[in-house]
């Protein structure tokens, strides 16, 4: 067992003990091990180095590595907790933990705020929202006139930017999503409840003596 664990650690930099990761997240030990099966497949899709780079992340989302996307890049940057340009296994588990159906709502709100605060200023600014709208239009091949985009921004900031200073702060965001709960839908992945069923092979690669449920 000891040999197996050290081999895993050598091949997968940042690999943390599944029992320890489970104790810090909403996942069980079995679920962490099932996530490791998914992680192995993503992290070996382009370069088999035990780490997920941006190209591998995009490939996992779009099944097409050539597709550059502002939002997938932004999620990658937030998953890259240690800011090393790659996602290691502990980053992967801790970040996905926010998307667990049982994760605290405050964590989901906080993550979504950071997601849209493209320039990490602590505010979601109008120009950032415009940039995201334009990126969405490019991605979806939908066309909207610039006047219409401005009208959408006016409406959004009228509703969200309560103190009308041209930017949305965290407390305004908390208030806004409480009135528009559908905005947090993307922050919950029901798949995470069934991860052991989706990746049953974790049982054969388990590092722990007894699988906790």
């Amino acid at each position: 067992m000891g040999c197996f664990s050290s081999k895993v650690k050598r091949q997968f930099p940042g690999h943390e003990d599944p029992v320890s990761l489970a104790s810090q997240t909403a996942f069980t030990v079995s679920e962490v091990e099932a996530l490791f099966e998914l992680y192995k497949s993503i992290s070996s899709s382009v370069i088999d180095d035990g780490l997920i780079n941006k190209e591998e992340f995009q490939l996992a989302i779009f099944k097409n590595r050539k597709k550059e996307n502002l939002f997938a890049n932004r999620i990658f940057d937030l998953f890259d907790v240690k800011k090393k340009g790659v996602i290691d296994f502990s980053d992967f588990v801790r970040s996905l933990n926010v998307f667990h159906p049982n994760a605290p709502q405050e964590d989901k709100i906080d993550f979504s705020f950071k997601l849209y605060d493209l320039e990490n200023t602590g505010f979601i600014e109008r120009r950032e929202v415009k940039q995201m709208l334009i990126a969405l239009l490019c991605e979806s091949e939908m066309k909207l006139a610039d006047d219409t985009i401005e009208l959408i921004l006016d409406k959004t900031f009228r509703e969200a930017d309560v103190n009308q200073d041209g930017k949305i702060d965290l407390s305004e965001w908390i208030n806004f999503v409480s009135k528009n709960p559908s905005l947090l839908k993307i922050m919950t992945l029901p798949y995470l409840r069934d991860i052991t069923t989706t990746f049953p092979s974790f049982v054969f690669n388990s590092e722990v003596d007894e699988i906790a449920t």
Partner: peptide, 25 residues
Amino acid sequence: EPVTMNAFELISTSQGLNLNSLFEK
């Protein structure tokens, strides 16, 4: 035509924000 959606409702439809695809084999 009145604008009914807010910007974030539109943005959240991006495929790049759909992490469900990570689990689809």
